[in-house]
Design a protein around this nucleic acid. Sequence first.
DNA 1: GTAGTTCGATTGTCCGGACATACGCATTGA
DNA 2: TCAATGCGTATGTCCGGACAATCGAACTAC
Lengths: 245, 245
Amino acid sequence: MSLELSVDRSSPVPLYFQLSQQLEAAIEHGALTPGSLLGNEIELAARLGLSRPTVRQAIQSLVDKGLLVRRRGVGTQVVHSQVKRPLELSSLYDDLEAAGQRPATKVLVNTVVPATAEVAAALGVAEDGDVHRVERLRLAHGEPMAYLCNFIPPGLLDLDTAQLEATGLYRMMRSAGITLHSARQTIGARGATAAEADRLAEPEGAPLLTMQRVTFDDTGRAVEYGTHTYRPTRYSFEFQLLVRT
Amino acid sequence: MSLELSVDRSSPVPLYFQLSQQLEAAIEHGALTPGSLLGNEIELAARLGLSRPTVRQAIQSLVDKGLLVRRRGVGTQVVHSQVKRPLELSSLYDDLEAAGQRPATKVLVNTVVPATAEVAAALGVAEDGDVHRVERLRLAHGEPMAYLCNFIPPGLLDLDTAQLEATGLYRMMRSAGITLHSARQTIGARGATAAEADRLAEPEGAPLLTMQRVTFDDTGRAVEYGTHTYRPTRYSFEFQLLVRT
DNA sequence: GTAGTTCGATTGTCCGGACATACGCATTGA
DNA sequence: TCAATGCGTATGTCCGGACAATCGAACTAC
């Protein structure tokens, strides 16, 4: 093996990050085969001219991603299963784009409304206070795929309709300087109401996949509450998750 | 504030872990209020008689859990939202028990069958090779809640029917020395077939929530493949997830 | 032949220090 | 008044070392 690894000390990119990226690429690329040992940390550090803590930090980040497993007294080996991406907070838009689907969005509603009790509770704003309401239809290959209804607290974001159709809500938030931190999700199913059936081109009573989500930024503010319905024949939630140790 | 923190150097429990547990307890308990600064690392280390790397390791583990946020030049503060548990690989049995539901299980089938192409591909075993097939009905308050169909490679585990009814599959795996590592899940929805409707006491065509899962241990072996159907009026998937930074 | 023991290898934990970097705030200047 | 500058503070990165805990394998004794 003997993998070509090197770090650039003049780069502003942290050394441990450079290393972890190279290792991840080697795993993805197949240069590091599943089950193979990584070689001990001390020798690896010496070979790269790094200290052991730095090498450990690089390795640890890949362990956290589920790509590597450490065994005391044995070594660090490449996990040898098809690890895709662990679950992360992603928008439907990004998901579709990553799948090469070229998603389209149609904004149905983009107004300011008084918050209902449900919305107020989710976002932590006053009942009957102003909130943005955005209703969108997400299409793939010209077919409706999901109906998205979102509520956003006022003053956070410029909700331009054209931009909403060109990109995703999360991407707009990030570029508005909002640091997304966590989200609370509920995934369920139910039969379509007449209105939902009409919007999604399904028969009434057809099974729908539902998702509700409240998203928080790193200051703890709720920045978005959404109620989404998906056509289960067109979309399902697929993700990898790791056992917290 | 001035929070009483202390570590026991004679304990075999790592120091950073002692500290992170005390901090987590303080947050949960309310002694550390959301938004409050944690005090700088150097001073905290000095106060506890620890080194800064050790304190950082403790803090980092809580940052990874989503409980704390670090800001360079500012400090570390408690995240100020209702962070529950982040998503983890859990069994339905544990979920229900945690919710105080006292789940019951009825084992419908517990045999060895030849692997179909689908099962063989998921588990990475030979087609038509032996695999265990376990079908279970999960009940809460006497009502059927979910129908679970699992396939397990041979030789991994002693699949005692009585034990399957008394506890969950994951718990049995863990006590058999299997280290669960990751899982790949797909959540969807569809209408109930006649057989499914009958098992779950729902009308035919009723919306069902479906989940398929392949679970891997830390050597990369697939240790379980499951196809589950849930009654959406009785169960939904609820979880918190963090943005990977 | 089998069970117990020793031993080398490797990661786990911890230390004390150094410099870099970014944020917030007060000061300064236009 | 408002913008630019500088400074203190806190985290981010990195180093080199030390000892402990654990695993696997070779070895030894019965």
